[in-house]
């Protein structure tokens, strides 16, 4: 594919936590409109990898490129880049002291300098779209987990991101709330959003992703099209992992 369609690119990325080598020579390219799912056992480094992309985690060596440009290390440039990449967290992290509406408008008003009324109109449209518009004036703690996570997605979307990172977006949810969040994510994928998703939701991975990246012990062990990966995993580790989660 053409150079400019590469939205996220990691080249030979390494990271240690003290002696633990959590990311080992990671090479990963995400093209425009692609949905890449990161899976693997816990402690495999997939969340860490996801978080390096907007520098919530630093790296020891290697390169991260966003649309061909090196990831800024600090200051306005870094903030600017983060504004362009949405992030959805496992524990939602909605601003606890702000209303749902304020959670969504804060970024546009403070960072994009969108006029308040415009920001609010857009925010209401987004909240409508993720199905929580009627909760707009409540505070996060008054919402269910599934609702909070949908607000978190709306908060990211309000920044008109080039790509979105999802760090285990459904892992903290009660089972009956997982689908309402996944549905929003499926919609996003279908609209062509570039997405990197760390998840244990195998059905979502199979149905929506263009590529599955399997990680173990800080390494990318194998990657491939979802059907291929789930039906004919090449590595023994992937086979073991798939067996363990399928409960065989």
């Amino acid at each position: 594919m053409a150079e400019q369609s590469r939205v996220i690119e990691l080249r030979h990325v390494d990271k240690h936590y003290d002696k633990l080598h959590v990311l080992q020579d990671i090479n990963l390219t995400v093209h425009k409109g692609e949905v890449v799912v990161l899976i693997g056992p816990s402690g495999s480094g997939k969340s860490t990898l996801c978080r390096t992309i907007n520098r919530l985690e630093t790296i020891d060596s290697g390169e991260i490129l966003i649309e061909g440009e090196p990831l800024p290390q600090e200051g306005k440039a870094l903030a600017q880049m983060r504004a362009e990449i949405g992030m959805v967290f496992q524990s939602f992290n909605l601003f606890a002291h702000k209303t749902i509406l304020q959670n969504v408008t804060l970024g546009p008003i403070e960072v994009l300098k969108t006029p308040k009324d415009v920001a609010e109109r857009e925010a209401m449209e987004l909240l409508e779209r993720v199905g929580v518009a009627e909760q707009a004036h409540k505070v996060p703690a008054q919402l269910s987990g599934g609702q909070q996570q949908r607000v978190a997605i709306a908060r990211s979307l309000a920044m008109h991101p080039k790509a979105m990172l999802f760090d285990e977006p459904t892992s903290a949810l009660d089972p009956e709330m997982i689908n309402e969040v996944l549905e929003v994510m499926v919609e996003l994928a279908q609209e062509g959003m570039t997405m990197v998703v760390v998840t244990h939701e195998m059905n979502f991975a199979r149905r929506v992703s263009n590529r599955v990246v399997f990680m173990a012990d800080g390494q990318i062990v194998e990657e491939g099209a979802p059907d291929e990966f789930f039906d004919r995993p090449k590595s023994q580790r992937a086979k073991d992992f798939l067996d363990s989660i399928r409960g065989h």
């Binding site: 907007n54 919530l56 903030a79 600017q80 983060r82 504004a83 362009e84 990449i85 949405g86 992030m87 967290f89 992290n93 909605l94 601003f95 606890a96 804060l106 970024g107 403070e110 960072v111 978190a152 908060r155 990211s156 920044m159």
Partner: peptide, 10 residues
């Protein structure tokens, strides 16, 4: 809370 704020570009 800090991470979320940074991630939207604050």
């Amino acid at each position: 809370q800090t991470e979320a704020a940074l991630s939207i570009g604050l």
